[in-house]
Design a binder for these strands. Sequence first.
DNA 1: CGCACCCTTGAAATTACTCAAGTTCAGTGG
DNA 2: CCACTGAACTTGAGTAATTTCAAGGGTGCG
Lengths: 235, 235
Amino acid sequence: MHVKIHPVGEKDCESCGIREHSLFKDLTTEDFQLIDQPIHDLDLESHSTLFDEGSAGTHLFTIRRGLVKLVRFQPDGSQRIIRLLTAGDIAGLEITASASYDSTAIAVTPVSACRIPQGVIIRLEKESPRLHGQLVHKWHEALKQADDFIADLASGNARQRLSRLLLRLSQHDSERDVLLPSREDVGAMLGITTETASRTVASFRREQLLTPLDKLGRHFKVDATRLSAIADGLR
Amino acid sequence: MHVKIHPVGEKDCESCGIREHSLFKDLTTEDFQLIDQPIHDLDLESHSTLFDEGSAGTHLFTIRRGLVKLVRFQPDGSQRIIRLLTAGDIAGLEITASASYDSTAIAVTPVSACRIPQGVIIRLEKESPRLHGQLVHKWHEALKQADDFIADLASGNARQRLSRLLLRLSQHDSERDVLLPSREDVGAMLGITTETASRTVASFRREQLLTPLDKLGRHFKVDATRLSAIADGLR
DNA sequence: CGCACCCTTGAAATTACTCAAGTTCAGTGG
DNA sequence: CCACTGAACTTGAGTAATTTCAAGGGTGCG
């Protein structure tokens, strides 16, 4: 696993491109003075692991670019994806409340992230009400996402689940197009097999709910209107 | 819906039976002085609603006794249970971060709860680091429970899901016995139909994985060892 | 060119859903 | 005290959806 690390000073954080979405959004210059351990800037390859479930929680990560999956391993060794993180999200939030990670975080695409030592967060949380508010905001976001995951992606038949996933993935994206993870990951996210994921995508393609934008079958333009109907169970 | 309300003063909170599990665990006597709005003690009947998804968040609830389900309504009008709350858990935590409730909370059994005004929590959170720590703890608990829900109760076939639910419900209980909610709720929790829930329970009974302790088919003694094997997919 | 890796497809088996009766039990009122 | 009723649970039979197992394609890379 190749990882590029650049130590960054406060200057970099203060001028960071995604700061308005990040934990450090509201921090003042004085707050930045409290950072007494290095924050690293990471570039991670696809498939690399940010941390493992159960291991000691030493850092928390702000995702700057790319897609990260949080997974739990099932008794049979397969993965169940429990959440997806994109730019602005935090991986490893739980270490502000606990000693170890609650799930495994794996990059699904190339990822850029800031790696923040636990100590920095703990210190800032104590001494900066600004960070504090952002942390609460992140807890809420994570919990809501988990709840959405249960209500949307773990309910209904395969067609409904895939529709909801596609709608969700296309939502934040520029204009109704979606870059899907591998069929295996789609399955692990929806709680269906890889084959069913593949068949359902193929079926959506035949029905022109999805129009391929590449030859690999990952990048699509979606028909949001008709997908919404399917998501709501209308055939 | 019948609700009994008893206003309580700080004295009651300080001597509350479940305080060691509650939000107010670490509060000092001075902290209690900050409570400037009445905290009510509620007795709720089975099936009564604590709050509705989307409605303005005015209170948060500490469950003292009984079982509460958090639900989201599906496009077809049916419920999907996204979390179960028992003694010591908090319902409506999200209003410390947001203006409205993210899900609907409904009592599954008769429930006793403390109803705490949003203002009290917001004030205490600002002024008492003790409460603050407890809140973070509760966020973490809720998130972990949501993640467990996805990994355990929304993965695998009906037998595996039911096994995991039974094991989880029997865990905290005194001695390997379980009081199940209605079959409909079991289904809504596992993402299966009522009929499949019923059939699977019946099947477990025939296999003596469950031994009825009442004639209604709600209260059982569980065979934890064999259920674990099923939960892990070993037939 | 050939080897991986992922995706796709087929066919049979399994699992779960749907629809439609029954059954049981608790509570109600005659 | 007993029939009546409603709600929840159970069960069956047929159908639909999904999984499983197995094989075949396509793409990119060494």
